[in-house]
Amino acid sequence: MQGNIAILGYGLSAIGPGVGIGLIFAAYINGVARQPEARGMLQSIAILGFALAEALAIFGLVLAFVFK
């Protein structure tokens, strides 16, 4: 078996943001279900949180390619 251990590291680093994005959108759906009229406001916040969490995953992806 051969390969690059950086890719393995990326796989590990994607776990955290995956869980985080799930939590963010769970909270968003919860909020919209409870209070549909707040959808516009909640969406902006959810997208921001999603971007910040996803940024970590993309950091992992890019670093896995950079520091081979």
Binding site: S44, I45, I47, L48, A51, L52, A55, F59, V62, L63
Partner: peptide, 24 residues
């Protein structure tokens, strides 16, 4: 310059997303 570009690009894209979709 590679790590600096990496960080700057990430910051820029988060700023752009905040500006486009996040600002009320």
């Amino acid at each position: 310059l590679v790590p600096i570009g990496l960080l700057a690009g990430m910051a820029l894209s988060i700023y752009l997303i905040w500006f486009r979709y996040g600002a009320e």
